[in-house]
Every structure is written in C-alpha cells, then in structure tokens.
Amino acid sequence: METLDLTFPGTRPVTRRAHVGVVASGDLEVLLWPAETTTVRVRTSVDGFGAVWRETLARFFARYPVAVRVEINDAGATPGVVALRLAQALEETES
C-alpha cells in the first residue's frame, strides 16, 4: 500500500463535489471537492509507481487546470482508467 500527496497549479475552481468509480480490481474511486488549490492524495494497492502517477496526473491537470481537492483510492488501474475517472468526476462537478 502506498500513499502519494501531490499538488498542481489550478486556476478554475470547481463548484460541486463528485464521486465516481469503485475500488475494485483494475479500477479506482475518485472523489473531488471544491478547493482553492489543487491537491491530490492517491492511495494505491500497487507500490513503486509514483513516477507514473505523477506524470499521469500532471498531464491531466495541464489539460484541465482546475482548483480542486482530489482523493483517489486505487486497486491497480491503468493510466487510461485514471484519466477516464478523473474526467468523469470533473464532468460531474459541472452538471
């Protein structure tokens, strides 16, 4: 089990909370809250992939520069699933 705490620049605050996904084999849960800065806590069952997490999240927040607090509970999701769940959660904050 590994926990990562990361920060990214964020300029556009989200207005609502969101929850998508489930903690299951090959999937993950994403929770978002409005915030003034972008902070991400990743709890993953797979150790040793910190660099992959950092790159995946940096790419996402470069494309979507939102200010948000994010918690991710991971059970071995691929970077593609991570980006998909984050996009789904972000969409939920706008609906």
Rank of each mutant, 00 (worst) to 15 (best):
M1D: 01
M1E: 02
E2W: 12
T3A: 03
T3C: 01
L4S: 03
L4R: 01
L4C: 03
D5F: 11
L6K: 03
L6V: 00
T7W: 00
T7K: 11
T7R: 09
F8Y: 10
F8G: 10
F8S: 03
P9C: 00
P9Q: 06
G10N: 04
G10D: 02
T11A: 12
P13Y: 03
V14W: 04
V14I: 08
T15G: 01
A18S: 13
A18Q: 12
A18G: 08
H19M: 04
V20N: 11
V20L: 13
V20A: 07
G21E: 14
G21V: 06
V22A: 15
V22R: 14
A24M: 10
S25C: 09
S25V: 08
S25W: 09
G26F: 08
D27C: 08
D27R: 13
L28P: 04
L28D: 02
E29M: 14
E29D: 13
E29N: 13
E29A: 15
V30T: 14
V30N: 11
V30H: 13
L31C: 11
L31M: 13
L31I: 09
L32G: 03
L32N: 05
P34M: 04
P34Q: 02
A35S: 15
A35W: 00
E36S: 14
T37V: 00
T38G: 07
T39H: 03
T39I: 05
V40F: 06
R41H: 06
R41C: 03
R41A: 08
R41W: 02
R43K: 06
T44H: 00
S45C: 12
S45W: 03
V46A: 06
F49Y: 09
V52H: 02
R54H: 14
R54D: 08
E55Y: 02
E55C: 01
T56V: 07
L57S: 12
L57Q: 05
A58Y: 08
A58F: 13
R59A: 05
F60A: 05
F61E: 09
A62Q: 13
A62W: 01
R63G: 12
R63A: 15
P65G: 03
P65H: 05
P65Y: 00
V66A: 06
V66R: 09
V66L: 12
A67W: 04
R69L: 07
R69S: 07
V70D: 04
I72D: 06
N73L: 14
N73Y: 06
D74L: 02
D74W: 05
D74V: 02
D74I: 04
A75K: 13
A75C: 09
A75L: 05
A75S: 12
A75G: 02
G76Q: 12
G76R: 07
A77I: 13
A77F: 05
T78Y: 13
P79A: 08
P79M: 03
G80F: 09
G80Y: 10
V81Y: 01
V82G: 08
A83E: 14
A83S: 15
L84D: 07
L84F: 07
L84V: 11
L84K: 10
R85N: 01
A87V: 03
A87K: 10
A87Q: 06
A89P: 03
A89L: 10
A89Y: 05
L90M: 02
L90T: 04
E91G: 15
E91C: 15
T93M: 08
S95T: 10
S95I: 14
S95L: 14
S95E: 15
